[in-house]
Design a protein around this nucleic acid. Sequence first.
DNA 1: CCAAACGTTAAAAAGTTTCTTAACATATTA
DNA 2: TAATATGTTAAGAAACTTTTTAACGTTTGG
Lengths: 188, 188
Amino acid sequence: MGYSSDEKARESLDHAKEIVVDSIAETMDLYGVTRSAGTLYGTMYLEGDMTLDEMREKLGMSKPSMSTGVKKLQEFNVVKKTFRKGKRKQTYVAEHDFFQFFSNFFTQKWEREAKVNLHSIKEAQHILSSIIQDDNVSPELKEEAQEAYHIMENSKTYYKWLNKLVEKIETGEIFDLIPIDPEQEDKT
Amino acid sequence: MGYSSDEKARESLDHAKEIVVDSIAETMDLYGVTRSAGTLYGTMYLEGDMTLDEMREKLGMSKPSMSTGVKKLQEFNVVKKTFRKGKRKQTYVAEHDFFQFFSNFFTQKWEREAKVNLHSIKEAQHILSSIIQDDNVSPELKEEAQEAYHIMENSKTYYKWLNKLVEKIETGEIFDLIPIDPEQEDKT
DNA sequence: CCAAACGTTAAAAAGTTTCTTAACATATTA
DNA sequence: TAATATGTTAAGAAACTTTTTAACGTTTGG
């Protein structure tokens, strides 16, 4: 039978994976992804495509948790449904290109940030304009309105830049500007 | 006495500010900043420097909440202590340059992400190497270890790129690569 | 066509975070 | 030095989120 170390090796191997999965979960937590969703992503990243039941067994959690977790990850565009030939169960696969992950995750948020804020600024500035143009308003209030208007106007520059950044990322142009370092030797 | 619209104007003005503050809070929420911390930042952004008591009054919350909220924002490097001459109370000021905000906020997180994950990968790969080199381990396990090793090795490329991105942002080089659009006329 | 499998939704429970009140330590000024 | 102001810490309460158990509808295979 041989392979006397298999049991220990299995344990070490799982432990090694765990270290990285935890680490991924911890860092995703920085961006507001819950720990369990992060763990789920990390696990799928290392284990390849999985069914809900496989996830449940691996993480020791309930199936509905897996279902909602996967759904949340799908919303972030970092997990997709797949089909495993001949299998009845649905499988899911994690985005395994971190550059794509970065792109999907952040551009979605930045796009939203720019859109939401530019919209509010428009609305607010419309109100402020009325105040500024109203002759029955005291100079003090007018000035305060002017100042707020100006601050908002100023911030638009940022949101426009953010949209540019998003575009550069979505087109992949960002990787011309900031090149990806060539991979080095696999010194196993 | 004149300025017959002042009362209404005050209300409109506050409402206009509120719209933008809410919007800022909502979008900061996307990155894992709590709603109240976001509101605090937004308020300080529009109102200028404030004392804890001014914040408390403005947001209708307790002073300890303001204290911890400000502290959290300081951790993100987007709020700083200031001194208001002649005043005893400490004042705080929000980073009012959103480009600086972006820089401070994201580079901190990306730096941490790269550091934490590269460290775990190193640790995990060390374990995996032992398995791969152990002749008492079955080929199946070895292969699995190899595969995990390879995935991890591969992901290092991303973290290195992230560090490059951080550097480009910290040095401001990013704004040569993706220029900030010149501001346009203030068409009040 | 029936029985089992699968995934999701709903409601309840558990856990976590945020907020407030109260107490405390430090600094200021009268 | 005493009294007050200021900011923080600690403990408890409230609110919110996550997780689980249970139930439901749909699909699939015998």
